[in-house]
């Protein structure tokens, strides 16, 4: 269970734009173990998706990626395009967030499902068809045989998202990257899809990276959580550690922003200020302009990751022995 499947080391991603270099991902280190669910949370623009797309090598040509991303002992960033396309869809697959635009409107669902299966598993068309029907059945698309000859616009949003998940599962990958797979769906369908993913993970022992900004989803599904802010990892730990012993002020702020049924009196908190401009990120810790505990050191030097025991790590100057002590329990629950 604890054998690392994917190790990201010192990943940096920049985009060349008219206005200058946008630093989307800065020195990210993460590990995903076999068969575990790692949730990556953070606001839009915090670099969650870009991190994944960087090592999947799916970014536009203006992206500059450096660092080391080992999957199963192979550095993905060093592979040729041909070798990489053998891994994409076969070993690592992705489920994207927008089911309305993620499927090709002029090809039938069958064509789109079969092509990956035939390519990676070496099946012929009839066998691929059988596999596609099997997959659609598994993700709960009714009448799969008939559905295969239809086009994406004949499917509802929820059904399309199921198709996207089926596409992700098609070749029994060892890792699925699910980029906000439920954001575009309404709540009941969201729950169904998540339940489905949980079940599939159990059956196939697939590792999942779940990108989301919904902490409720995280609590229900994840084994471990990485909190990202301003292109960096702010804190990483088990679900228990993140929800019950959070150490980074940004994590506190995120947790304060969850509505809770058991505390009526408290006003729902939002995080003050706005996410950093990645074109000119603030010096030092990216969170310091919005941090209630910022110290002068935060404005000049980016904090290192501090190991807090049991693989719980946070990047914050408050972890420094000289820093003032802040009680996280109080911070999370304060009004």
């Amino acid at each position: 269970m604890n054998k690392p499947l994917l190790t990201i080391e010192g990943l940096e991603t920049q985009f060349k734009t008219y206005a200058g270099m946008v630093q989307a991902v800065r020195n990210v280190n993460l590990t995903v173990n076999e068969g575990e669910v790692l949730a990556v949370v953070g606001e839009s623009g915090s670099g969650k998706s870009v991190t994944m797309m960087s090592f999947m090598r799916l970014l536009a040509k203006n992206a500059v990626v450096s660092g080391k991303v080992e999957f199963n002992g192979v550095d993905l960033l060093k592979l040729s395009n041909k070798e990489m396309s053998k891994i994409r869809g076969r070993e690592i697959s992705m489920v994207f967030q927008d089911p309305m635009t993620g499927l090709n409107p002029v090809l039938t669902i069958g064509t789109q499902m079969r092509e990956g299966i035939m390519l990676h598993l070496g099946l012929n068309k009839a066998e691929a068809n059988k596999r596609a029907i099997e997959l659609l059945n598994k993700v709960g698309v009714p009448e799969p045989a008939r559905r295969l000859s239809q086009y994406p616009h004949e499917f509802s949003g929820g059904m399309r998202q199921r198709v996207m998940i089926a596409l992700g599962l098609a070749c029994n990958p060892r890792l699925i990257i699910a980029d906000e797979p439920t954001t575009a769906l309404d709540v009941t369908i969201q729950a169904q899809i998540l339940e489905l993913m949980k079940q599939l993970k159990k059956e196939m022992n697939t590792a999942i990276i779940l990108i989301t900004h919904n902490l409720g989803v995280v609590a229900g599904m994840a084994d471990r959580v990485a909190v990202m802010y301003g292109g960096r990892v702010a804190e990483v730990g088990t679900v228990h550690q993140i929800f019950h012993q959070p150490r980074h002020p940004y994590t506190w702020a995120l947790l304060r922003a969850i509505p809770r049924l058991d505390e009526h009196k408290r006003r729902l908190e939002s995080i003050t200020g706005s996410p950093p401009n990645m074109l000119k990120p603030p010096g030092g810790c990216p969170f310091h302009p919005r941090c209630a505990h910022a110290m002068s050191v935060c404005t000049s030097e980016a904090p290192e990751m501090t190991e807090l025991g049991n693989n719980h790590r946070a990047a914050c100057w408050l972890m420094h022995p000289d820093a003032p002590k802040v009680d996280f329990n109080q911070e999370v629950t304060k009004a």
Partner: peptide, 23 residues
């Protein structure tokens, strides 16, 4: 050793947070 003064809290955090990071 990082000198202690560097760990002094910055004043007036609320106002700073409300400031928009780019003009």
């Amino acid at each position: 050793a990082i000198s202690d003064s560097r760990f002094a809290p910055l004043p007036n955090r609320q106002a700073a947070a409300e400031r928009i990071t780019t003009p």
